[in-house]
Design a protein around this nucleic acid. Structure first.
Lengths: 251, 251
DNA sequence: GTCTATAACCGGATAGAC
DNA sequence: GTCTATCCGGTTATAGAC
């Protein structure tokens, strides 16, 4: 159509830029998949059904998404985007740490609600350490980092006093806490997931209290141990003898 | 899938005892499966291979084990038995809580070592809340209870002073702690899983210290919260019996 | 080189004959 | 209780179309 229809394809680098057409098809497939996941759950959604409802062939679906699981990575990103959009604005007007934390956690559950059934089955594949979908995996790092940044904002935007040592590790610890809540949620069969909300209320209170106590001299060693814990967890993603500083590198 | 299948044993046997013949075949299949799991991992082991190496047909394998996943339940039980046998005797001569806890945790990792690869893939299916293999599920209750009892012995056989409230919930909390360690372990790619052992050393110290501090009046509310946590967790296994109409039904 | 489609393959699971 | 035959769905190979 346009004379420079050629797109800015780099000469040497592997052409990552997809054509407009492909982009549309890809989106169509993704939207269809997420809808079917919501309607029928993960296992109930066959790749054949996704392809058919998206109006493409099975082969095309696999052209755009290497596997059924790769559709999940897209879900992670979307889930986080919706979470961010839902709670980001409301964070501005609140200074109390517990209130901020509550807001963010509840928002995560709120926005994830339509995917509750799906998330359960999802969690299965996600907890295979070998799967690129493990929340600890290399591939999940971008979303994980974004989520951790949100939690960092929660802490830094509050009026809570946190010792520097703890402040540095706190977002990572809170991400871990969030993972625990989500793990509870996917198992939660109560109506409207009231149990999860109750758990959030009670544990958040606990967490904030612990943070408050962390400056007590007597508890100093505990803080130290908690920091060690996150360090170990970060190392988990790296295969043994590699140095430090994962989580900071961009390709 | 069907929530009401209590046992993996074949046939709704009108007579109680399974036939000797069947018992043998069943064992043969199970041993073969566990060996192949060790040698090739979970995904690498096909039901066809299990059947073939066990000298039975595919259909027979499915006669004894409703699904590939049901073989895992058997692994749970065996793993716990080996754990118990490995550490039970050595527990008698030690009174220090940290030492006792260390012993039990290390023993769990020691005895599970041959199944490391398998356990990783296993964890996948095990964390589907709908799967009967979820550690929180009804079906897993017997093994879970046995494991909790072991942890109860760890506490009660020690010379640590624990307030009655905490003492009652501590085994459940420690079981949760053990689950966390195992979760770390299945992700651990370090040689000989040194990181897991290091994590055990460091967190056990932390855990014991927290237990020691739990009697401080200032920390009383924290203990209360922790107890609430286990209560909520226990409820997860039960399908919402609190008078509310259940919006979900099993097909 | 980008995209689409058809026809397999493989392994988990089931039906039903014996 | 044991088998064979078959289904079903994720995945792959491959042959073209644009």
């Amino acid at each position: 159509m346009s004379p420079s229809d050629v797109e800015a394809t780099p000469a040497r680098a592997p052409s990552k830029a997809p054509t407009r057409k492909g982009e549309n098809t890809r989106n169509q497939i993704l939207e269809t998949a997420l809808r079917l996941f919501r309607e029928r759950g993960y296992d109930g959604t066959t790749m054949r059904a996704v392809a058919e409802e998206a109006g493409v062939s099975l082969g095309s679906a696999y052209y755009y998404f290497r596997s059924k699981e790769h559709l999940i990575q897209a879900y992670y990103q979307r889930s986080h985007d919706e979470h961010l959009q839902d709670c980001s604005g409301r964070l501005g007007s609140e200074r109390d740490l517990e209130a901020r934390l509550l807001l963010v956690l509840r928002s995560k559950i709120d926005t994830s609600a339509p995917y509750h059934r799906f998330a359960g089955q999802l969690f299965r594949t996600a907890s295979d350490p070998d799967s690129p979908l493990s929340p600890f995996s290399e591939e999940s790092l971008p979303v994980r980092r974004q989520a951790t940044e949100l939690l960092q904002r929660v802490v830094e935007g509050s009026d809570a006093k946190v010792t520097p040592t703890l402040a540095q590790e706190l977002p990572g610890l809170l991400w871990l806490y969030l993972m625990g809540i989500i793990l509870f949620w996917v198992h939660d069969r109560s109506t409207e997931c009231v149990r999860t909300y109750r758990l959030i209320d009670r544990t958040t209170e606990l967490v904030v209290r612990v943070i408050g106590l962390a400056s007590m001299p007597l508890l100093r060693p505990l803080v130290k141990s908690a920091v060690v814990l996150t360090t170990e967890l970060r190392r988990l993603a790296t295969p043994d003898h590699l140095g430090e500083a994962l989580g900071e590198e961009a390709p």
